[in-house]
Deep mutational scan, measured.
Amino acid sequence: MQRVNMIMAESPGLITICLLGYLLSAECTVFLDHENANKILNRPKRYNSGKLEEFVQGNLERECMEEKCSFEEAREVFENTERTTEFWKQYVDGDQCESNPCLNGGSCKDDINSYECWCPFGFEGKNCELDVTCNIKNGRCEQFCKNSADNKVVCSCTEGYRLAENQKSCEPAVPFPCGRVSVSQTSKLTRAETVFPDVDYVNSTEAETILDNITQSTQSFNDFTRVVGGEDAKPGQFPWQVVLNGKVDAFCGGSIVNEKWIVTAAHCVETGVKITVVAGEHNIEETEHTEQKRNVIRIIPHHNYNAAINKYNHDIALLELDEPLVLNSYVTPICIADKEYTNIFLKFGSGYVSGWGRVFHKGRSALVLQYLRVPLVDRATCLRSTKFTIYNNMFCAGFHEGGRDSCQGDSGGPHVTEVEGTSFLTGIISWGEECAMKGKYGIYTKVSRYVNWIKEKTKLT
């Protein structure tokens, strides 16, 4: 034993070699072989497995989906700052455009905790909710729209109204504003409101030439003092309507412009014939205590009207009353817009006519005020429907199939267009061939041609 100890002390290297040989010859039971080890760690190889990531292109799944990435790591994937920024906006807080917040056709661009709407022409605001041009839906104005110097929408209202708090709607500024039905039992019968379409306001006024200088022999019209197929109006439903009495009662109609003036057809009036105007009328054979009678003290036909040349060209006249009318729910003026808007309103496509005229061709006159909704007829169809001249200051309205029309005794009465609950004068009943005849239409004086003249002559002093 002493000898062994001496050998170990003198030859430590020998001992180490012996131990190493023993270990190498022993069977290893701690580690699995290569094949079995792979069965336990069965993990798919990654895209760049075996390579240094710093030297390969980034992978979106590896960089940002398996674990949260930084902007720089995302930049490695896209290799483009702009594309990385677009991805980053949604990656950080989701897609803010998912709810489609942009209105009126706006395009949404996502941002971090926010979004941006790219608005089409005519709109602005956070969600493109603000109209900035009158060309689109009248700028959301209830009545009139004008573009300011910086191309912003400025709404306005006709006389007797003021802008509401929203700067879009119009509200009454006087007790009985024009064009409004205020009798409670008839307010439910107000005709369907007309909503502004998209309009090209630059070209809204037709490029028409008034044929002022045409000389033409007097034409022989049949029954051209021209509501057939209409309905009984309720008291106060058309408070701007008046009836004219002269040699015979209810020979023509008219509309209240203001307390002192009536507008009617020029062919209705004769110099030297006494005319009485009755406002607030409903049943011409009954006294309903809503009527107001006034005498006409002055007749002003349009300066281009000449019955000797043509009885229905420039067929418009103004009547001055001896005493002002007292405005109330049964006696209310009709609204008159400017030339541009009167023309736009007419193009809405349908209007209402009213009167006490004959209820059928050569038949009896109506006792109760009649009204009828009539569609506008395109000019080409209008011209083809008659052998008589249709001037540019006239328009056609009615039904091709016949059966409904204005008729004798309705002449001078109103053709009105309702705009968001307020009625505007767009025409004056003038003439036609018979009444409600198939293929024939009622012919009306186009008020847009005469609004400046009306307003100039009827100013209240």
Rank of each mutant, 00 (worst) to 15 (best):
V4A: 12
M6D: 13
E10T: 08
S11N: 13
L24F: 13
C28F: 02
F31M: 13
E35G: 13
N38G: 14
N38E: 14
N38H: 13
N38W: 06
N48D: 03
L60N: 02
R62I: 01
M65T: 05
E66I: 05
C69Q: 00
S70N: 12
S70V: 07
E79F: 04
E79W: 05
E82K: 05
T84K: 02
G94Q: 14
Q96R: 14
C97E: 03
S99L: 12
P101N: 05
C102Y: 01
N104W: 04
K109R: 10
I112K: 14
I112P: 09
G122S: 08
E124C: 05
G125V: 02
E129G: 07
T133Q: 13
N135M: 12
N138S: 06
E142S: 13
F144Q: 03
S156L: 09
C157N: 01
Y161V: 01
C170M: 00
P177S: 05
V181T: 14
S182F: 08
S187R: 11
L189V: 12
A192W: 14
A192Y: 11
E193R: 07
T194L: 07
F196Y: 13
N203S: 08
S204E: 14
E208H: 13
S217G: 06
T218E: 13
Q219C: 05
F224Q: 06
V228F: 09
D232M: 15
P235Y: 07
Q241W: 07
L244F: 05
K247D: 15
D249K: 14
G254H: 00
S255D: 01
N258I: 00
W261L: 01
V269K: 02
I284L: 15
E285A: 08
V296A: 05
I297R: 09
I297M: 08
H303V: 06
Y305R: 09
L319V: 06
L321M: 07
E323Y: 07
V326W: 07
N328V: 00
N328H: 03
T332R: 12
D338R: 04
Y341Q: 14
F345C: 02
V353W: 03
V359A: 15
V359C: 07
L372R: 11
P375Y: 11
L376H: 06
V377Q: 07
D378T: 06
A380I: 10
A380Y: 12
T381N: 15
K387P: 09
A397Y: 02
F399R: 05
D405R: 12
D410N: 10
D410P: 15
S411L: 15
V416W: 15
E418Q: 12
E418K: 08
T422P: 00
I428T: 03
C435E: 04
A436E: 10
A436H: 12
A436R: 11
G442D: 04
S448I: 02
K455N: 07
K457I: 15
K457R: 15
T458M: 04
K459D: 15
T461L: 08
